[in-house]
Simulated assay, not measured.
Amino acid sequence: MRDEALEPADLYDRRMRVVDVGGGTGFTTLGIVKHVDAKNVTILDQSPHQLAKAKQKEALKECKIIEGDAEDLPFPTDYADRYVSAGSIEYWPDPQRGIKEAYRVLKIGGKACIIGPVYPTFWLSHVQLKKIGPKWYRGVRRHGLIMGCSVTGVKPLSGDSPLQLGPKAEDVEKPVNRFVFLLRFILGAIAATYFVLVPVYMWLKDQIVPKGMPI
């Protein structure tokens, strides 16, 4: 599914400058470097533990790997040809701020490809949409967020985004509230369990229900 999700990013030139925001262990980056020289790719993530795993991957040895915040990117305006973020936006405290940053760091004509679990429904969105998911789902979208979506847009003008936002929803430099952290950890563990069980359930249905019949 990784290669399928990256298709809308249009990585057609090995000389492209690409930023992989929320790149974590480098799983998505491995798909990027199939099409772009690793020396032109930057992996950014808030977790040093995740990035340590990315650094161990031989194919990513020439990538620039840095810690950073998706909502406050350490890149100049009009910097990258492609912005990629996979499986990260659902964890951002203020997704609009992260999208605003994606717009800012892209060059004019540059393309952003954000891959997440929610299919956008706002009718005014001028973006390219691509559903992704395991074949055994047979296109079904039930039981919650069981399918993903690549959302791709092109930067039409140079400079910063015209979107005006207030103060950041969460300051990562402030001390962590232990109660909030524990609550988020519990909710995250429940969600992770659900996301494991649903694909197993759908796979079993795919094995039982005859091909060609809806599941």
Rank of each mutant, 00 (worst) to 15 (best):
R142H: 11
K64M: 12
Q128A: 14
H143C: 12
R178H: 11
A189R: 14
G153F: 14
A102L: 06
R2N: 13
G26Q: 06
R97P: 08
G87F: 07
E62Q: 14
G188T: 10
A59T: 03
V172E: 13
G139S: 07
T29F: 04
L73W: 02
P76A: 15
T77I: 15
L51K: 05
V18W: 02
D37F: 03
D20H: 02
V41N: 03
V154C: 07
P76W: 01
F185I: 05
H143W: 13
E7D: 07
K111C: 14
Q96V: 12
D10Y: 03
F75E: 07
G98K: 04
I32L: 03
P199C: 06
S158P: 06
V180N: 13
V33L: 04
L106T: 03
Y119S: 12
E90P: 07
R82F: 08
I99W: 08
C149E: 09
W92P: 04
Y103H: 10
K111T: 15
A52S: 14
K107G: 03
P156M: 02
W92R: 05
G31Y: 01
K61I: 04
Q96G: 09
V118A: 11
G22E: 04
I146Q: 11
K64N: 14
P175Y: 04
E4F: 06
S150F: 07
L124E: 14
D69Q: 06
D78Q: 10
L106Q: 05
I43E: 00
G109T: 05
A54L: 04
W136C: 11
P214F: 01
W92T: 11
I32W: 03
D10A: 15
V127M: 08
L73P: 02
W136T: 03
T77N: 13
I146E: 10
T193W: 10
M202W: 10
L73V: 05
T193H: 09
R141P: 08
